[in-house]
């Protein structure tokens, strides 16, 4: 039996670590299964936990192109698959006007690949080397686009009425991300492998901080991560993700903070890098609250209860 998967995963783990992404075994298995089962991977999780970073890291680790399709409400085939460069087509028509064979050649000329604008989905299947196709925030796109995407993912070919069918010449690694803004269709979920990315635990987050911010004092990193882990347990409007942790630690380092307990003022001033709503900043920006979270104490009313 083929048992190279362990080696493949170790290789992938090393390569991703080199790009600054720390992946756990479950995620590595999901990424490996993408190739083994030849299926797209749907990554779901809160904003800022590193879903998009996975695709970027894989592309970088494999030294391949990352083709990104950012989804939004109203996204349609013209922006996702292909479109005609109609300004250039108009110019071509004007240039050929007066030419004796213009009428015969015109349609063939202006509907050629030369005037075709390849959008991410078409580009991904027409790139000679296997690329990483990131369909980011699929939950922001409409249901109609989901159906269109399903067809392309299943058929691995795209038909342009004027030119014919474009077969896939490479098989991209497809990663879809979702923040859960909208429920995705069951048809899409069924066609994808699924992985839920949660907030990292203390050890993993510490490793991420060290990987992404090399040369950082270990004690500062440890204190900062501990603070973030504690504050995630509080009732926040917006729970900070890994991206916010990295921003905040970078801000602390820039402010020459070496010990959080000795630099409460600096912690206060750097808090906007971590907390992203006014109410959260107001509540947790107080010295007493900061001190409490640093010490990992529960709020007094909870202790009393």
């Amino acid at each position: 039996m083929n048992v190279n998967h362990t080696e493949r995963m170790q290789h992938l783990d090393t390569a991703m670590q080199a790009t600054g992404y720390i992946a756990d075994t479950g995620l590595l298995a999901s990424l490996d299964l993408m190739s083994v089962l030849d299926k797209p991977l749907l990554l779901e999780g809160e904003a800022g936990v590193g879903k998009t970073g996975i695709a970027q890291s894989i592309a970088e680790a494999n030294k391949t192109e990352l083709i990104r399709l950012q989804c939004y409400e109203g996204l349609d085939a013209q922006h996702a698959i292909y479109d005609w460069d109609y300004q250039r087509q108009l110019l071509a028509i004007q240039i050929q006007q007066g030419h004796p064979d213009a009428d015969a050649n015109l349609k063939r000329t202006i509907y050629s690949e030369e005037f075709l604008l390849m959008r991410p989905l078409l580009r991904a299947i027409r790139t000679p080397q296997t690329s990483v196709l990131l369909i980011d925030e699929i939950d922001r796109a409409d249901e109609e686009f989901e159906a269109l995407l399903l067809e392309i993912l299943a058929e691995k070919q795209i038909t342009v009425p004027e030119l014919g069918t474009f077969e896939a010449i490479s098989n991209p690694l497809v990663i879809l991300t979702s923040n859960g803004v909208r429920e995705l269709s069951d048809a899409l979920r069924r066609r994808c492998l699924y992985h839920y990315i949660d907030y990292p635990d203390r050890e993993k987050e510490l490793a991420i901080v060290h990987a992404r911010i090399p040369g950082l004092e270990h004690s500062l990193a440890k204190q900062a991560v501990s603070f973030v882990q504690n504050i995630r347990q509080e009732r926040l409007r917006k729970v900070p993700g890994v991206a916010e942790t990295l921003d905040w630690v970078a801000a602390l380092a820039a402010l020459n903070v070496y010990d959080l307990k000795d630099s409460i003022d600096s912690v206060q001033s750097s808090l906007p890098a971590l907390l992203k709503t006014r109410i959260d900043t107001e509540i947790f920006g107080h010295t007493d609250e900061l001190q409490r979270i640093l010490e990992g104490r529960k709020p007094e009313d909870e202790n009393a209860g």
Partner: peptide, 23 residues
Amino acid sequence: ASGYCRNQLLFRAGLKTCFCDSP
């Protein structure tokens, strides 16, 4: 069949990826 069942951790992770479809 690809060998995932030889490692409990990977087998669990693989089945989780296949059988789950929501948080």
